[in-house]
Design a protein around this nucleic acid. Sequence first.
DNA 1: TAGTGTTATGCAACAAGTTGCACTACCCCC
DNA 2: GGGGGTAGTGCAACTTGTTGCATAACACTA
Lengths: 176, 176
Amino acid sequence: MSLRAILLITLQQEPGTGYDILQRFKAGLAHVWQASHQQLYRELDRMRGDGLLTCETVPQAERPDRKVYHLTAAGGEALDTWLAEPLAAGPVREPLFAKFFAWERWPADARRRELGDLHEQLTQRLATYAAIEEEWFAAPERLTPAQRAPWHTLRLGQRLTQTWREWIEEVLEEGE
Amino acid sequence: MSLRAILLITLQQEPGTGYDILQRFKAGLAHVWQASHQQLYRELDRMRGDGLLTCETVPQAERPDRKVYHLTAAGGEALDTWLAEPLAAGPVREPLFAKFFAWERWPADARRRELGDLHEQLTQRLATYAAIEEEWFAAPERLTPAQRAPWHTLRLGQRLTQTWREWIEEVLEEGE
DNA sequence: TAGTGTTATGCAACAAGTTGCACTACCCCC
DNA sequence: GGGGGTAGTGCAACTTGTTGCATAACACTA
C-alpha cells in the first residue's frame, strides 16, 4: 500500500510520468522512497485501472510517448484516507547486526572492509542530503510550514546517518 | 536471502525448533530481525530441502512433535560465504516521511495522534532494549569480544531510537 | 564507428513477505 | 464453562519487490 501512497503524493504535488517520478525519487525524495522503474510503471498502470489516476499520452518526435499521470478525485480521497490512518510499525530487519552475532566466524578483514565501505556510503549519503538541503531548503526560517515539513524529514535522515557513521567509527576503533 | 542467513546464525549458536527461533526473535534479537511463524516454518523446511539443515523429530506427550533443526556442514559453509561477502544496501522506505510531503492535506489532529503514538512505541522499545541489556549484557567490560559484538548492535539500536524520539518531540513542539 | 549514458516504455518469471485459516491441548482466570 | 494465553505445527492465496530481458533513438566521446 505504501508505494501507492507515495505515488499519490508525488502526483498530487505535480502530475508526471513514471520516468519523472523516478527522477524525483533520486533527487529530493532520496531519503524517503526508492523503487525500480519496473515497479513504478506496473503500479501506475494498476492505479489507473483502479480509477485513482488518469493518463494522458503525449506523443514525442522520434521518442517513445510520454504517459503523463494525474490524480483523479478518487485518487485524492484515497490519499486523504491514507493520511488519516496511522501507519503500522514496520518489521525490524538489520542483516548487518546479524553478522555481529556470528562474530567468531566473521573474518576480521571482511569485517573491516565491509564496515569501511559502509562508512564511505554513509558519508556519500550525507553529501547527497547536504546537496538536497542546499537546493530545496536554503534559508529554513523563511519557509512556510508546508515547505518546512519535508525539511524536518531531511534533518532526521541526516541525524540517523550520522548516528550510524559514528557507531561504525567506534566499532572499527575498538577492533583496532 | 537474509532470512536464511539469520536462521543459519541462530541455529549455529544453538539448534532449535521454529517456535524456539520465534522466541529468540522476540527476546534478544528484537532489534535485529522479526518474522512471522508461518514464514519461519516454510523457510526452515526449504532449507532442509536444500541440505542446509537436518531435522530431528522429538515426539511429545499430548502435544505436536517438536522438530529440532541443526546446521549441516553445507549450512556452515553457506553461512561463511554469506559472512564473507558484503551486504548490499537496502532501499530507503520511510512512509512516515511521505506524510510530511503532504503536510497541507494531513489533518493536524491525525498528525498529533500519530506522532504521539509513535513516541510511545519508541519509548516502549527503549524499555525492551534496556531489559535485553540488563539480561544479556550486564558488566560489558567483562564480556569477551564475541559477546561484546552483539552488545554494540544493541547500543546502536538504542541510539537510533533515541534520535527518532527526540526528533518527534521537536516536531510536536513546533506544531505549536 | 563503437561504446556509454539519457530519455522513455514495458513484460515475465521469480523471490520474499503477509494474511487468513486450521488443528491439538494444556493452563489460568473470571 | 468460556475466553485468553502458551506451546507447537502448517497450508493456501495473495501482495509486494527483484531480476532479467526487450525495444527505440538521440547525444557524446574515445
